[in-house]
């Protein structure tokens, strides 16, 4: 049981940061920016490349986050601000096009082989009966700290208040003297940092290949939509729900249902489950599970 909880936690950590980043951007710029998922790949690959060049890991991670934040702001100003004037549908298509370009560039720059951070291979340790590797624990801690800091900024600082005000009613926020364009770009930068940390925390746990952007796309969206797009703390809950669903499906013995003693679904179906959860939620609770609550960022 504890092992199950540990598996869920590790998987949720994979999704949570990127889903929160996606939701945070959506709260201000009303289209789902698919490229955010690729930003996390950019972060992971940059950190790996810099560490390979001899930069200490912490510094490499920090630089990667800043570069991704700058890239996110650049793409937002150069591409999305312009295309949004035509319509949010076009912006969604543009973000897809941008992620295709990014993944093509990374395929050329890093090749199709999975790469990894140069970390000592850690032995699994026993934590209250659940087996976790040290690197997995690092990645969980990284994610929890990042989410904590983000929540602190969002709910406890004047900047966070401005961010929430802009998300709730941009015109009103502007009328009260908030520079909404600046706030939007700050949120875009923060989302870039969060996505990059998400990517790096994945790279801490294991090898990262060029496909990981594509593979993460739908589970991350499932988590964000489940929490109600634009509600970043909802995205955290969404990530947990998706992680539970995925872990359950691959760990539960469906034998009794199928009339056999052992019947496990193929592991390939784990991701399918998150898509099915997503489609089911969209069918019955189209605005996500958590939107009926307080309408905050």
């Amino acid at each position: 049981m504890l092992q199950f909880a540990a598996d869920v936690l590790v998987r949720a950590v994979d999704l949570a940061l990127i889903a929160i980043a996606l939701s945070a951007v959506y709260s201000l710029i009303r289209f789902p920016n698919v490229a955010v998922v690729q930003y996390s790949v950019v972060g992971a690959f940059l950190a790996i490349a810099m560490q390979g060049a001899g930069v200490p890991l912490l510094l490499a991670g920090a630089i990667a986050c800043l570069v991704v934040a700058a890239l996110a702001v650049f793409f937002n100003m150069a591409i999305f601000e312009r295309i949004l004037k035509i319509g949010s549908a076009n912006a969604l298509i543009a973000s897809l096009a941008l992620s295709m370009i990014l993944s093509a560039i990374f395929l050329v720059a890093f090749g199709s082989q999975p790469t990894r951070l140069d970390l000592p291979v850690s032995r699994a340790i026993n934590l209250f009966g659940a087996r976790l590797t040290v690197n997995q624990i690092y990645s969980v801690v990284m994610t929890v700290v990042a989410i904590g800091l983000y929540a602190l900024v969002l709910f406890q600082t004047p900047l966070g208040r401005q961010m929430r005000a802009t998300a709730t009613n941009a015109e009103l926020a502007q009328a009260t003297g908030i520079d909404t364009r600046r706030i939007t770009n700050i949120v875009v930068a923060i989302s870039g940092v969060l996505a990059a940390i998400g990517g790096i925390s994945l790279a801490v746990k294991g090898a990262v290949s060029i496909e990981f952007g594509t593979n993460m796309l739908l589970p991350v969206f499932a988590a964000a939509i489940l929490g109600g797009l634009g509600n970043s703390m909802g995205a955290l809950a969404g990530a947990l729900v998706i992680a539970v669903a995925e872990t359950l499906v691959t760990n539960v013995n469906f034998g009794p249902l199928a009339g056999q003693s052992f019947f496990y679904l193929p592991a390939n179906y784990a991701t399918t489950v998150s898509f099915i959860v997503l489609v089911a939620v969209l069918l019955f609770r189209p605005r996500g599970l958590f939107v009926s609550g307080v309408n905050r960022v």
Binding site: P32, A89, L92, L218, N268, Y269, V279, L283
Partner: peptide, 29 residues
């Protein structure tokens, strides 16, 4: 189109993308 009954455009777009992926994974397995 049933799925699109009460969804906004962008949500629906993601939903159709996931259905296509579900179909591909099921066909592979």
């Amino acid at each position: 189109s049933r799925l699109g009954k009460n969804l906004g455009t962008d949500y629906w777009a993601i939903a159709t993308l996931s259905i296509a992926e579900i179909m591909r994974i099921v066909l592979t397995n």
